Amino acid sequence: MLVIDARNAALGHGLAVRRILPFRQRRMVGPFIFMDHAGPVAEPPRVVSELDVLPHPHIGLSTVSYLFGGSVTHRDSLGVQQVIRPGEVNWMTAGSGIAHSERFEDPAALAGGALEMIQTWVALPEQDEEAAPSFANYSEAELPVFTEGGLWMRLIAGDAYGLRNGVKTHSPLFYIHAVLQPGTTFGLPQGHEERALYIARGTVEIKHVTYGIGQMIVFEKDEDPALRTSTGATLLLLGGAPLGDRFIWWNFVSSRRERIEQAKHDWKEGRILLPPNDNDTFVPLPEDKSKPAGGPPPPPNPLS
């Protein structure tokens, strides 16, 4: 069992995040290669747009956005404009290349520290890394919910605990939002090679050790411990089949180092198109390991 403590990072000019993946000792869990927990925003900025993540590129992955509170407007190279709200999923597959922005355009979405978002990246199998870009929004009604005793679960994607939904994925995985009432005990999903949980709120006891907010616990394949909370907890459970090693630099993911280099040149030369309805500003290609003006900064060990 490996414990990952989230590190502080920043998106845009005012959105603080906890960064969980990638981690030096654990780059991926199943196909999940990146995970950020943004918010809750306790003190909204004077100008809401200060939180915006400007148009930036991706290749070789799917971005998965899920909100606990607030709202975010997504725009991408395909011309899609989609407001995502709590309980929905925005699933954007970058494939051969796409650019998108995430704008916080509704001041009411920040009221009372409401804005809180989880973003993950799911690496693509080699045969799908150059797929045509696509985007889908899945409503609450399309994501099944299971309740029993003190346990509430929403299946975000994949399959687990006998639940399935219509979210299109490219490899075997599971991704769950779970809320546990105090005193609840439950187990990990079966049938997946790699499994982890992230604690967004509350605490969880595993083998008589208590873990808290901002910690991810990655389990060994043969581990099947009972998970219990005495305080109540909000969790993200995720994992699936491993895809093999991936190179990651800035917003680019690939099984081939040379493809990352190509993506750098493509973005610099304008060959990855900006969103047609959000093309006045963008994030320039970072020339070193420093944090760019928007979009996720380069993770540890770029191209390692």
Results as ranks from 00 to 15, higher is better:
Gly60Trp: 00
Thr93Tyr: 02
Phe219Gln: 05
Glu102Gln: 11
Thr184Asp: 05
Ala178His: 02
Pro31Leu: 04
Met117Asp: 00
Ile98Ser: 00
Pro144Val: 12
Gly95Tyr: 05
Thr120Pro: 01
Pro297Asp: 08
Gln181Glu: 15
Glu220His: 12
Arg164Trp: 10
Ile118Gln: 03
Lys207Asn: 14
Asn137His: 12
Pro302Gly: 10
Val47Arg: 15
Thr231Tyr: 06
Lys168Glu: 12
Phe282Gly: 03
Glu140Lys: 11
Gln81Val: 15
Glu261Tyr: 11
Ile248Arg: 09
Gln127Pro: 05
Leu188Met: 09
Phe135Gln: 04
Leu78Arg: 07
Leu151Lys: 11
Ser139Pro: 03
Val89Cys: 05
Asp106Ala: 09
Val64His: 02
Gly69Cys: 02
Phe282Glu: 05
Gly294Gln: 03
Ser171Arg: 07
Ile248Gly: 06
Thr120Trp: 07
Ser171Tyr: 06
Ser255Leu: 06
Val218Ser: 05
Pro40Cys: 08
Gly95Glu: 03
Gly70Val: 00
Met153Ala: 14
Ile118Pro: 01
Gly214Leu: 05
Val80His: 11
Ala160Gly: 04
Ala131Pro: 03
Gly214Ser: 10
Ser62Arg: 08
Thr231Gly: 07
Val122Asp: 01
Ala123Thr: 01
Val53Met: 14
Ile84Leu: 09
Leu235Ser: 03
Ile213Trp: 10
Tyr138Trp: 11
Phe186Trp: 11
His170Asn: 11
Ile84Pro: 00
Glu220Gln: 13
His265Glu: 13
Arg154Lys: 15
Ala94Arg: 01
Pro300Gln: 12
Trp250Arg: 02
Asp76His: 06
Val64Tyr: 04
Trp152Asp: 10
Ala263Ser: 09
Leu110Met: 08
Gly79Arg: 10
Gly158Gln: 03
Asp36Thr: 04
Gly60Tyr: 01
Trp249Phe: 14
Val167Glu: 03
Leu163Phe: 09
Ile217Lys: 03
Glu223Ser: 09
Asp288Trp: 09
Pro107Tyr: 12
Pro57Phe: 03
Met153Trp: 06
Ser304Lys: 12
Arg7Lys: 15
His37Cys: 02
Ser255Cys: 13
Thr184Cys: 11
Ala241Asn: 09
Trp121Gly: 01
Thr185Arg: 14
Gly295Trp: 01
Glu140Gly: 10
His177Gln: 12
